[in-house]
Amino acid sequence: MEALRLILLYVHLIGFALLLGGSIAQYVSGRLRINAAMLWGAVIQLLTGVGLSAPLRDGDEPAPAKLVTKFVIAVLIFVMVFFSRKRADVNRGHFLAIVGLTLVNAAVAVFWR
Rank of each mutant, 00 (worst) to 15 (best):
L4A: 10
A37R: 03
S84K: 09
I34V: 13
G59N: 14
A36T: 11
I14N: 07
A3E: 02
L52F: 06
V99M: 10
I44W: 07
F16Y: 02
M80V: 02
G30V: 08
F78R: 04
A3K: 04
G49Y: 02
S29A: 12
F95H: 01
A107H: 04
N91C: 00
L39R: 12
W40L: 11
K70I: 13
R5M: 07
I73R: 04
W112L: 03
A42Y: 05
L32E: 10
A106N: 05
V104C: 05
H12N: 10
F16L: 10
L56M: 15
A3G: 00
W112A: 03
L67M: 03
Y10D: 07
I98V: 15
G15N: 04
G21Q: 10
A3M: 02
G22Y: 04
A109S: 14
H12D: 11
W40P: 03
R92G: 00
L9S: 10
T102Q: 11
A107K: 08
I98S: 10
V50M: 15
R33E: 01
P64N: 15
G15E: 06
V90Y: 01
V28I: 08
G93H: 11
S84Y: 04
L76D: 03
A36P: 03
F78I: 05
R31E: 07
L67K: 08
G30I: 11
A65I: 06
S29L: 03
R31Y: 00
R113Y: 08
Q45H: 06
L103T: 10
V108N: 04
L18Q: 04
L103H: 13
R57W: 12
A54P: 02
K66F: 04
H12R: 12
Q26V: 02
L76F: 13
V81C: 09
V11L: 09
G51W: 09
F83R: 10
E2H: 12
L19G: 07
